[in-house]
Design a protein around this nucleic acid. Structure first.
Lengths: 231, 231
DNA sequence: GGGTGTTTTCGCCTGTTGGTCGAAAACAGG
DNA sequence: CCTGTTTTCGACCAACAGGCGAAAACACCC
């Protein structure tokens, strides 16, 4: 009696390329929406949950080792979001560090989230949700690790934040804030200066490459429990 | 070709009752999991999205006007989370103000989230997710409005936060923080003192009864843009 | 080799926020 | 009128983020 309901997973995979936040899309070769650009994904398999499914489907488009972070965005379930069939989608956000350039099939390409091509179904809406989720989480988590190479300079990290957030970020502040949160650590090495000279930049690394929420957002925290201010 | 996949919606409706955070559950009268307690919900209809569906299903259990806030928690999709059938669930968090006591069917009752009875399927996990989401959002949003009556004293609001957060909260701080964020406003009236006397408490109100995120969480904000500190 | 320009780094200052504490205000009851 | 209770308010302090400018460390050119 409940209508036969299919379930698909979709992934908005984001990466900063050429100082712009871009998303991985593939061009549909079949109707409906032939020629329009769609998010990677596909039908949920019988013996997998949605997390396993999205990783499996992504593996068909890119080298999954490049995708350092995957998290659930939400459910998109408008009755006619896909014409003809009843299809509920679980959308995901995926992040790729800026130093890798995974090989992709010929029908697949990166597009700046600011200038999307004609998109299929409700996928533009999903990309917008992914972008906002990224923006919010960059502020109060260490999610930057998923966009950055293993090692980087503060200015390189600053450029990533500028591209992802869409507004200027002070390098001074970025370093101080992240250091105080205890997620940044200097490696002791320095990078070679650019062609115009300049002081060699110190090389940093994220202390952990797993998502951690900053307690700074824990307003109204229990009494007596103060931040350790970076052990 | 994809296995016939059913889709259901489930709601973890939370309310502070008797100084404890409680969740609305109903006792299953049929197998599987007969006798165990389950979250309200049901199959997704053909002509509704999951948001519409959860409100419709909730209306069958409680007076929906009492539920002041509903938001998506996430998808639960373990292949055998419900024995026998393939059922994917979209879980929701619902909040009810502490001053209403909606009528519920005979098989339905409130249970403290700290002492859940035997629960059906993976519903205990969903309740735990709902509770953590509430805890997190109380800190950096004005979500308290959804747990509180339209008008209240600071100590009453403090008791709600204590019950929901599970740790002591300073009344002084709560008032100052919420006022500075611009979400609290004094009505000018005072409440009658308790039986033991004491100074009459001032009555407050939330300035808006819609979810708003505090910009305080927007660390690394654009330069020059400072908080208006409550106009 | 010294000056110039560039890039990064570091320290200081400021405004805001949240946590703590204690005093004062406003009530009931004896 | 005195005591006990509850609420309210102000003062103080530590932590934090943003802004700014000086100093450090390099490349290039004359």
């Amino acid at each position: 009696m409940p209508a036969a309901t299919g379930h698909e997973v979709l992934a908005a995979v984001l990466q900063v390329r050429a100082d712009e936040l871009q998303v991985l899309l593939w061009q549909r070769g079949m109707d409906p929406d032939r020629g329009r650009w769609a998010l990677p994904g596909g039908a949920l398999g019988a013996d997998e949950d949605v997390e396993e499914s999205v990783r499996r489907q992504l593996a068909e488009k890119v080298d999954v080792r490049g995708v350092t972070h995957v998290e659930q965005l939400g459910v998109f379930s408008a009755p006619h979001r896909v014409p003809g069939v009843r299809l509920v989608a679980t959308a995901f956000l995926g992040l790729v560090p800026s130093d890798v350039d995974p090989a992709v099939p010929p029908d697949t390409a990166w597009h700046p989230v600011d200038r999307l091509p004609a998109t299929a179904f409700d996928h533009a809406e999903i990309v917008e949700d992914a972008r906002e989720r990224l923006r919010a989480k960059l502020s109060y988590t260490n999610l930057g690790f998923a966009l950055a190479p293993r090692e980087f300079t503060v200015s390189a990290l600053r450029d990533l934040y500028v591209a992802a957030l869409g507004h200027p970020v002070s390098a001074t502040n970025l370093q101080r804030v992240l250091t105080r949160r205890g997620v940044l650590a200097a490696t002791g090495e320095t990078a070679a200066p650019g062609p115009a000279g300049g002081r060699p930049a110190a090389v940093f690394r994220f202390t952990e490459r797993a998502l951690r929420v900053t307690d700074a957002s824990a307003v109204l925290r229990p009494p007596g429990v103060r931040d350790s201010a970076g052990e």
